[in-house]
């Protein structure tokens, strides 16, 4: 899937009958080894939330929306930032290592209000599908409840952004009577175009939230997809906010 496909929302083209069949095939659809542990799922979710949070930070800074729209998107941004913090805290509490924030490049997403909102709509629906696709792997009931709680809010985001875009109610605001899970592999393919290759050994500076240590990107083979999953990115445990944002300048398209 190309970034352009993503921008056009093509990842969302799931018909209702297909959604049903995907649901009944829920466990066939997921590979048994998609996630090894709850921490694995949480770090997968954290990578997606990092992407979303940064997406709205940049999008909202671009001045493309105003008034009520701006207020909705500001709230969505703060929701995503809350999700990042909640997931990070949970991972730490469980004794795990949170993945680093991925380096991102949203390409032409912020060229216009429409491209911003269209990409947002896709992001939110991918997020909904990703959580649903991963839910069955979560063993701890408290974590499951928290993940479900995030999932529901992503669904709210998707619906409202669909309204802002003036999309048809069915197939735009709602994606049928049932949400459709998306397998990890497909989620990672969908977001891959936004994750840039990491720079060799570049010190990323102090994190502005969370750990407070200095994250070091270790070579060019640690990209999300190259490494085969968000979970394996866990390194220094810090968030490397500033450097990540700086990194969006190169490696476009």
């Amino acid at each position: 899937m190309s970034r352009l496909d993503f921008l056009r929302g093509q990842v969302n083209e799931v018909s209702s009958p297909l959604a049903f069949s995907a649901l009944s095939n829920r466990w066939k659809l997921a590979k048994a080894d998609d996630f090894d542990s709850d921490l694995d799922v949480l770090n997968y979710a954290l990578t997606l939330e990092y992407l979303e949070a940064e997406f709205y930070v940049q999008g909202n800074a671009a001045g493309l929306v105003k008034d009520d729209e701006k207020s909705f998107l500001d709230t969505i941004q703060s929701d995503e930032q809350f999700h990042v913090k909640a997931l990070t805290d949970t991972i730490v509490k469980l004794g795990g290592t949170p993945v680093e924030k991925p380096w991102v490049d949203f390409g032409t997403a912020f060229d216009s209000r429409k491209s911003y909102l269209t990409t947002s709509h896709t992001f939110e629906n991918v997020g909904v599908g990703a959580y649903l696709g991963a839910a069955g792997f979560i063993k701890d009931k408290a974590i499951l409840q928290a993940a479900a709680g995030i999932f529901g809010v992503e669904a709210r985001h998707a619906a409202i952004v669909g309204i802002l875009l003036g999309l048809p109610a069915e197939g735009g605001v709602y994606m049928s009577a049932y949400e459709t899970p998306i397998a990890k592999e497909d989620v990672l393919k969908a977001v891959a175009p936004f994750i840039t290759k990491q720079m060799d050994g570049t010190p990323t500076g102090p994190a502005d939230t969370g750990g407070g240590s200095t994250a070091i990107h270790k070579g060019d083979d640690t990209g999300l997809l190259v490494a085969g999953g968000a979970a394996v990115l866990g390194a220094a445990g810090a968030l490397a906010y500033a450097a990540n944002r700086k990194s969006t300048a190169d490696d476009s398209q």
């Binding site: 649901l23 669904a155 709210r156 309204i163 009577a177 949400e179």
Partner: peptide, 23 residues
């Protein structure tokens, strides 16, 4: 887990409903 998957797939839709009606 099957009930959970199906339940969650409905719950997400109810969240969309809630958001739209609030809107």
């Amino acid at each position: 887990v099957d009930v959970l998957a199906a339940a969650a797939s409905i719950a997400g839709v109810e969240s969309r409903h809630a958001a739209v009606v609030d809107y």
